[in-house]
Computed example of a mutant assay.
Amino acid sequence: MIEATDGPSDERHALFEELVRELKSHAAAEEQALWSAVLRNPQTTEFARHAVAEHKDIDKMLDDLAARDMGKPKWMERFADLKEEYLHHIREEEQEQFTQSAAILSDADRRHMRSVFERRKKEEKASAALTPKLKIKSIA
């Protein structure tokens, strides 16, 4: 829907704010409910670290977009980069990481994690906000 908007419109801003709240709250809740448990198992620690690192990368991309002028064509290019990174992350989680995690989790673990996730996502979403911060690549 963001891609269908033009320039620095109120609609683009509102949609982007909602996207930020959704992605940040989902990532935080997922880290607390799922990845914290999966990190403890040596068989799944590495890919759990990878998933959390990707959450942090996406978070930085969101912050960078929040700090930039939504009316500039470069903003949409950066947004396209975010979309590509996010879709890559989702594919990895759904096709690899969740499957491998399921193999080590009990039914009780799954029930507990579902409960934690739903509670934490609601709490996280209520406090999630745009945090404009430019991501500047160092020149070395």
Rank of each mutant, 00 (worst) to 15 (best):
K125P: 00
L87I: 13
R110E: 07
K135I: 01
K125L: 05
Q43N: 12
D107T: 08
I104Q: 07
M1W: 10
K135F: 03
L105I: 07
K135W: 07
E85R: 15
A126C: 03
I136S: 14
K74R: 14
Q32N: 09
E124C: 05
K137P: 02
Q95Y: 04
K137Y: 11
S101H: 11
E85N: 15
S101F: 14
A29W: 05
E54N: 10
E54D: 15
E93R: 06
S101D: 11
E92L: 10
G7I: 05
F117A: 01
A48C: 11
D6E: 12
P132S: 01
A128I: 00
R119W: 07
G71S: 14
T44M: 07
T44C: 13
E11F: 08
E85W: 13
D63R: 12
Q95L: 06
L23W: 00
T45E: 04
L65Y: 00
E124S: 03
P8A: 15
S36Q: 13
V20L: 03
R120P: 01
S25A: 10
N41A: 13
S115V: 10
A80R: 12
E30N: 01
A140I: 06
A129P: 02
T45R: 09
E84C: 08
K83A: 12
L39V: 06
P42C: 03
R21N: 07
L82Q: 04
E3G: 03
R91K: 12
A102G: 11
A33W: 01
A80T: 04
K56F: 07
F16S: 00
H13R: 15
H26I: 09
A140D: 09
F98I: 04
A4D: 13
A53T: 10
D63H: 06
A33H: 08
E96L: 13
R120Q: 04
D63T: 08
I104W: 01
E93I: 04
E123L: 05
A126W: 01
K74C: 11
A129V: 06
I139Y: 10
K60I: 09
E94K: 12
P73D: 07
M61W: 01
T5V: 14
A80S: 08
P8L: 08
W35F: 15
S25H: 05
Q43E: 13
M61S: 05
S101T: 12
T131P: 00
V52M: 15
L34A: 14
K133T: 08
Q43M: 11
H50G: 13
R91L: 11
E96Q: 13
A102R: 07
K135N: 05
E11W: 09
E84W: 10
R12F: 02
L105A: 08
K60F: 11
K60G: 10
D57E: 14
L39T: 07
D64H: 12
L23Y: 00
I139L: 09
K74Y: 12
F98L: 08
H26K: 06
A66I: 01
S115W: 09
H89C: 10
K83T: 15
D63S: 11
E30H: 03
S9P: 02
R12W: 02
F16M: 02
S101M: 15
E3C: 00
E77G: 07
